[in-house]
Computed example of a mutant assay.
Amino acid sequence: MITRLNTDYFDTALNDLSDILHACVQTGASIGFILPFSKEDAGRYWQERVRPDLTSGTLDLFAIYDEGRVMGTVQLIPASMPNQPHRADVAKLLVHPEARRRGYGRALMNVLEERAKELGRSMLVLDTRSSDPSRILYQSLGFQIAGEIPNYCRNPFEDRLEPTTYMYKDLN
């Protein structure tokens, strides 16, 4: 079951969201964080960076549940600039390592796309570390590669920089 979280659901899901983020970073996901990264760090991210935007309505947060536990999440962030009313960013597609290869990422992205269309958004944009498996998922969902930036992000385990791929999808 996929739910668009409001602040009430967010508070109930916070522990699971923190578990997912923590587990994904520990397994090498390039989602803005590097090791060491504690579960408390994950909780702070959700409370300080996501909750305010969720409360203000500038972000949609989706969660997929399996047996009552959040096992995946993704964020839709509509662009706020006057010249970009047609665009939205996809952020933090996370599936708990224990729940991968079950179609959760694809299902979350499909719901996110439907919400983007409801909001009148016709262009989705995202970035991913070029070597991440998520790039293959995004391409299979119809995202096109716009380009690659070398040395964009730090490897979560080693002191080296890696390229990031920017991708887009036209929803028309």
Rank of each mutant, 00 (worst) to 15 (best):
E40D: 11
V25F: 00
R49D: 10
N15A: 13
Q47F: 01
Y45Q: 07
N15C: 08
E48L: 04
P36T: 07
A23D: 11
R49V: 03
A23P: 08
N15S: 14
V25K: 02
G28L: 08
S18R: 04
Q26K: 10
L21I: 14
C24F: 05
I31V: 15
G32C: 12
Y45D: 01
I20A: 00
H22L: 10
G32E: 07
E40G: 02
A23C: 10
I31N: 09
F33H: 15
S38T: 15
I20T: 03
S30D: 03
I34D: 09
W46N: 00
D41I: 01
S30T: 15
L17N: 02
P36H: 09
A23K: 08
G32A: 14
G32W: 14
A29W: 00
K39E: 00
H22T: 14
I20W: 00
L14V: 01
D16C: 09
V25W: 03
G43I: 06
I31C: 15
L35V: 04
V25Y: 01
L35M: 08
Y45H: 13
G28I: 13
L14R: 14
R44F: 11
G43T: 12
A42M: 08
Q47A: 04
Q47L: 10
E40W: 02
L17Q: 13
W46A: 08
L21N: 01
D41W: 03
D16G: 05
A23Y: 10
A29C: 07
F37S: 07
I20N: 00
P36W: 08
I34V: 15
A42F: 09
I31T: 15
D41P: 03
I20K: 00
G43Q: 12
E48W: 02
F37I: 12
R49G: 01
H22E: 12
A23W: 12
A42C: 07
H22S: 10
I20Q: 00
D41T: 03
R49M: 05
G43P: 06
H22D: 02
D19G: 01
F33Q: 14
L21V: 12
K39V: 13
S18P: 12
A23M: 11
C24T: 11
G32S: 13
E40T: 12
T27F: 03
Q26H: 07
F33C: 11
Y45P: 02
C24N: 06
A29I: 03
F37Q: 04
G28R: 05
G32M: 14
F37H: 10
L35G: 05
C24M: 02
V25N: 00
E40H: 06
L14E: 01
D19Q: 15
T27E: 14
Y45R: 09
L17R: 12
A29Y: 04
H22N: 14
D16K: 07
S38D: 08
A42W: 09
L14Y: 03
S18K: 04
Y45A: 03
Q26W: 04
E48V: 04
R49Q: 13
L14Q: 12
G28Q: 06
D16V: 09
H22R: 07
E48T: 09
D19R: 15
D19P: 01
L21M: 15
C24L: 04
K39H: 11
S38G: 09
F33G: 05
T27D: 11
T27S: 14
L14C: 11
T27N: 08
A42G: 08
F33W: 15
N15F: 08
